[in-house]
Simulated scan of single mutants.
Amino acid sequence: MSRGVFKARRTVSRRSVLLALGGASLLAACGPDKGAWHAGGELPGDSHSGEVSADPMPSVFPSVAPPTPGQCPPITGAGTPRHGGPQYYLPCKGTQIALTVDDGPDPQYTPHMLALLAKYDIRATFCMIGRSAAAHPDLVKQVVAGGHHIANHTYTHPLNLTKQPAAQIRAELHRASEAISNASGGQPTLFRAPGGAWSDAVLSECGALGMRPLDWSVDPRDWSRPGVQHIVDTILTRTRPGAIILEHDGGGNRDQTVSALTIALPRLLDAGYAFAQP
Rank of each mutant, 00 (worst) to 15 (best):
L21A: 13
G22L: 03
G23M: 01
S25Y: 07
S25I: 11
A28P: 03
A28K: 05
G31F: 01
G31T: 11
P32D: 05
D33Y: 09
D33W: 07
D33I: 01
A36Y: 08
A36F: 08
A36D: 13
W37C: 08
W37V: 09
H38E: 10
G40W: 01
G41T: 12
G41P: 04
L43P: 00
L43W: 02
L43G: 10
P44N: 08
P44M: 10
G45E: 06
D46M: 12
H48G: 12
S49A: 10
S49E: 08
S49Y: 00
G50M: 09
E51R: 14
E51F: 11
S53E: 13
A54F: 07
A54T: 12
D55R: 09
D55Y: 09
P56K: 14
P56L: 10
M57S: 14
V60E: 12
V60Y: 06
S63A: 14
V64K: 06
A65E: 15
P67C: 06
P67N: 04
G70L: 11
C72D: 00
C72M: 02
C72I: 06
P73F: 02
P73E: 12
I75D: 06
T76I: 07
T76Q: 11
G77F: 14
G77D: 11
A78W: 09
A78I: 09
T80A: 15
P81G: 06
H83E: 13
G84E: 06
G85Y: 02
P86H: 01
Q87N: 04
Q87F: 00
Y88F: 15
Y88N: 15
P91M: 07
P91D: 07
C92H: 03
G94N: 03
Q96Y: 12
I97D: 04
I97Y: 08
A98R: 00
L99C: 06
L99K: 12
L99H: 08
T100H: 06
D102C: 10
D103L: 04
P105L: 07
P105S: 09
D106I: 02
P107D: 12
P107Y: 11
Q108C: 07
Q108E: 14
Y109G: 07
P111W: 08
P111M: 11
P111G: 09
M113T: 14
L117I: 10
Y120G: 10
Y120C: 05
D121V: 03
I122S: 11
R123Q: 14
A124K: 03
T125Q: 03
T125P: 02
T125K: 03
C127N: 12
C127D: 04
M128Y: 09
R131L: 04
A134R: 13
A135E: 14
H136Q: 13
H136K: 06
P137F: 12
P137C: 08
P137S: 12
P137N: 13
D138G: 15
V140I: 13
V140K: 01
K141I: 05
K141G: 04
Q142K: 15
Q142L: 11
V143L: 04
V143Q: 09
V144G: 00
V144Y: 01
A145L: 08
A145R: 11
G146Y: 05
G147R: 03
G147M: 04
G147E: 01
G147L: 02
G147P: 05
I150C: 02
A151M: 01
A151P: 00
A151L: 00
N152D: 15
T154S: 14
Y155H: 15
Y155T: 05
T156N: 13
